[in-house]
Design a protein around this nucleic acid. Sequence first.
DNA 1: CATATATGACCGAGCGCTCGATCATATTTT
DNA 2: AAAATATGATCGAGCGCTCGGTCATATATG
Lengths: 226, 226
Amino acid sequence: MKNNPKVTRKKIEKNCSHADVPTQIKNPDLVRERRKQIVDSTVHLFVEHGYHKTTTRMIAKAAGFSIGSLYEYVGSKEDVLYLVCQAIHTEVEKAVEDALKGAEDGKASIAEIIREYFLVCDKMMDPVILMYQVTQFLPAKWKSKVLENELIITQIFIDALNCLSGKGDLPRMDKTTISLVGHNISVLGHMWAFRRWHLAKEFTIESYIKYQTQFVLGLIFKDKGK
Amino acid sequence: MKNNPKVTRKKIEKNCSHADVPTQIKNPDLVRERRKQIVDSTVHLFVEHGYHKTTTRMIAKAAGFSIGSLYEYVGSKEDVLYLVCQAIHTEVEKAVEDALKGAEDGKASIAEIIREYFLVCDKMMDPVILMYQVTQFLPAKWKSKVLENELIITQIFIDALNCLSGKGDLPRMDKTTISLVGHNISVLGHMWAFRRWHLAKEFTIESYIKYQTQFVLGLIFKDKGK
DNA sequence: CATATATGACCGAGCGCTCGATCATATTTT
DNA sequence: AAAATATGATCGAGCGCTCGGTCATATATG
């Protein structure tokens, strides 16, 4: 990192979170680069040790520079936490949108949405759990922002359900029902992450998807098998 | 609290958690009494400030005695956390069992189970959220125990569902489906607590119960209204 | 090209403080 | 008096963060 003079990154898509966090460093590309290092290594530390037991020194070391340098790029440990939360959200949102992109135009179905989303939750288990654990430590100014981000992902499902409502073999659903189903899909995906300890005894992610799909589609009442 | 010499409590139902936590004090009734004071006041502190920002001094003060005395009844701050977790679990479990007692023999129905349980979740919102937040700080020796407790409550639903399966207008359900429905009821109850921030915009606890019941019962597919 | 100067990224010892835990002492109970 | 219980001043490890200083590189000058 010492010898990294020519940092020539093209301007990347605006990552809103960076704007909120002040820095001493002049070169904005370098800021992006270093903060990416910070976030990438800190996620692992937070997952393994939790927020409080992770020290700023550990963060600096894992990111590959000194404690002093860390504070050139970030004003506080809470800043790091915020950057981590935003990064995870961005990654999850991107993964969900990518996964649903194919499904969303035309031949979409609730089953596909659930499947793709649950696979994302499975793949990103640790970050998902981390978000549940650390949101509480964010300073107030950022907590609401991060909480809203969760809603954005739920909203993706709600939008999709709105498109699907009344089409195919799906009945029309009122606004409230759609909203609730959106929340449920969202949370039942998370449940696979934060109850995996229990659920893994009885389910694989595939069987979990199968049963939850059956459940969300209300098949409990239709027949008992296949 | 100073003048509380004659503590004459009849032996209460064995509260398992006490056995795990050593104390300097000889009189077991006094230990129970003081620990109840500790737990009762600490729940509020943890809810309001979180585990880490709550200091042992705050705990002692809120419980009504000195920091030194606190450590006579408890070996560490983590001990307090464990006692709090166990107390909350006991309270929730008791509330759920009480609520289902009437419903469980004979004229039970899934709708009633959901209703009673969700009302408990609503009433005990703060403790429910607290449990989600603090479990991560328990020492390993206790974490699994506390996690298992969560399963106990889920198991109550599973047992009830097993009784109901195939009776009335309810179809027979295989073991796995029942297990999943049990977990879902459990988590969807919690969801009312940890998403109340969002959900309260669209639901009251009553409408939430109504819609979720409809959802769990798979009515999405049957009709769109009442 | 060689040299001088300016810039700003990088460093880490150390400061100030918090907080869990202890222990010598005082008070109460038996 | 002896034992049990209560007290709060005191300790010290650990933490986030600062700040004076170094060094690599870019620019200016001769």
